[in-house]
């Protein structure tokens, strides 16, 4: 038995590996070379265990298998996020490299559209090519074109929704983004232009001073049957927007932040191998002399 294979040496290596891999000790944040140190120490640990009897060799085999699989998935696996609002689709995801570094867009292998977001956070996605729907809940990930999509989280989207109310006669309320069309009461409404911080320039032309919804206003295209109107609404003046020939009043009630959902995306081809490695290592330890 070499000195590397003594109980003390093996115990010291296991101790060092245990401390270096702990997420509660920020060793990798302090010194980036810790990753290389862990790889080297793992190799030594495996060699030290190979020096022993059959159960130890099983532990070595299991450890080596798990370490290689985990390293492969951490470095060569694909990880990232998708952020979508309801009704929006994509064929790519924002890929992240080791350490959470953003590396750009990566093809997903299929198109996904967010059909609905349920109150408990569950997201219903429809796949464009596979022509099927999948449910991604906070407690259950789903597979889309070989990728695992999971942990849906509500996040604030860059856009905003305008809350528009139609009163007098057939009443209704609708929430629309810029360029979207919706129905409120008996009217079809399209948001032509949206001014988050409305103001008029020297030529009395509308413009927005900032992207913050401080003085929101919008230019709407309203249709009923074959008749159509262009209506300007501003939140600061509710209940006064009634175009000629239309027996309805339109009000910009409020502007609410658009809520999107962010999904994590993972592809870990060596996951099965990692699980197998853990089982083999556990069998090796259990088989040891008791």
């Amino acid at each position: 038995m070499t000195r590397l294979g003594t109980s003390t040496a093996v115990a010291l290596m296991a101790l060092a590996l245990g401390l270096a891999t702990s997420p509660d000790l920020p060793l990798r944040d302090v010194q980036p070379a810790v990753g290389g140190l862990v790889a080297g120490l793992t190799a030594l640990f495996v060699v030290a265990l190979l020096d022993r009897r059959a159960p130890r060799r099983l532990v070595a085999l299991g450890t080596a298998t798990f370490a290689l699989a985990a390293a492969y998935d951490a470095v060569r696996g694909e990880h990232g996020t998708i952020t979508l609002v309801q009704g929006q689709g994509t064929r790519t995801f924002e890929e992240e490299g080791p350490g959470g570094r953003r590396v750009g867009l990566h093809p997903l292998g299929d198109g996904v559209v967010v059909d609905s977001v349920e109150p408990d956070g569950t997201v219903l996605l429809s796949q464009a090519d596979a022509r099927r729907s999948v449910r991604v809940s906070p407690s259950r990930a789903a597979t889309v074109a070989g990728y695992r999509l999971g942990t849906p989280q509500p996040v604030a989207a860059p856009g905003s929704r305008l809350v528009l109310r139609v009163s007098e006669g057939a009443q209704g309320e609708v929430r629309l983004r810029e360029g979207e069309k919706g129905r409120a009461g008996d009217l079809d409404i399209t948001v032509g232009r949206y001014f988050p911080d409305f103001a008029l320039d020297e030529r009395q032309q509308p413009f927005t001073r900032s992207d913050e919804p401080r003085n929101p206003a919008a230019l709407l295209e309203v249709t009923r049957g074959t008749a159509s109107w262009r209506v300007f609404v501003i939140r600061a003046m509710p209940g006064v927007h009634r175009p000629e020939g239309l027996d309805r009043t339109l009000t910009l009630v409020d502007v609410v932040a658009d809520e999107a959902v962010r999904l994590s995306v993972h592809r870990e081809p060596a996951a099965l191998l990692a699980g197998l490695g853990l089982l083999v290592a556990a069998i090796g330890v259990a088989w040891s002399r008791w």
């Binding site: 702990s22 998935d73 259950r140 990930a141 990728y147 999971g150 870990e268 699980g275």
Partner: peptide, 14 residues
């Protein structure tokens, strides 16, 4: 893997 889509979670590491 079943819940978050990855087996490399903080709990696994811990």
């Amino acid at each position: 893997w079943l819940r978050a889509g990855t087996y490399l979670t903080p709990l696994t590491a811990r």
